[in-house]
Design a protein around this nucleic acid. Structure first.
Lengths: 120, 120
DNA sequence: TGTCTATGTTGACGGCTGTCGAATCAGGTG
DNA sequence: CACCTGATTCGACAGCCGTCAACATAGACA
């Protein structure tokens, strides 16, 4: 298979998504979209996988490099798929191995949601 | 009753918690602690409630001001409790009403986790 | 005291989600 | 081609979670 479906909300280059959390109450739709991203990081295993990819040299990592998080290999694959669906990771097959890479724009957007709210 | 139990990890004033997600792979414990916070924001209703509190004047809001999110009142209470347990909100009763307030330090810590990772 | 309003708690239900083993797919190698 | 390894998908199960109605609690006020 090729591509898991991506969240359309994340397609714009800088992923503006939603206003800072303290600017105004989020609408139901905004909350729905944003919650998907936070939920993706709301699992310990996914957080470890994501951190492993993000901290790996070159900003990308093969599944084989990061699959030592205490769960079975199908479960690792399942979580990577979730992160991908949330728009936080992208994947590419190169020969034998599949490499995952972080999406910095999405990360920055999520960070802005929080830091702008914190500073105000 | 008074207080719901807080996460001990969030007690230090600036809530240093964990390194940026791309500095090194998170340990199991770090991931466990951090995931609790992200999970708290990983629900649309909670995100709307949190945003409503954060954007309310004075940085605090009475439950009656924010409970119009399309779910029943007990459900609102349930979600506010979750946000409180995650260390994202604090509450205080003043007379008839209960006021919720955001914890900016925790918010800043979560933001730093993401923005530092995004910029590197 | 009693009553009203504002929140929180309880108990139950249904759906979602994390997990695994087994099967399957993709690519490399012989 | 057969075979092996890396990775995903499938099918099933248990536990968690969001939701509600009903009940309980806290404070204000008469």
């Amino acid at each position: 298979m090729s591509n898991v479906k991506m969240l359309p909300v994340l397609e714009p280059e800088i992923a503006p998504c939603c206003p800072p959390l303290n600017e105004r109450p989020l609408t139901a739709e905004e909350a729905e979209r944003t919650a998907v991203m936070f939920k993706a990081l709301g699992d310990p295993v996914r957080l470890r996988l994501f951190s492993a990819v993000a901290s790996h040299e070159g900003g990308e990592a093969c599944v084989c490099d990061i699959s030592d998080v205490g769960v079975s290999q199908p479960t690792v694959s399942h979580h990577l798929k979730k992160l991908k669906e949330a728009g936080l990771l992208s994947s590419e097959r190169r020969g034998t191995w599949v490499y995952y890479r972080v999406e910095p724009a999405v990360l920055a957007a999520m960070g802005a949601l929080l830091t702008k709210a914190a500073s105000a």
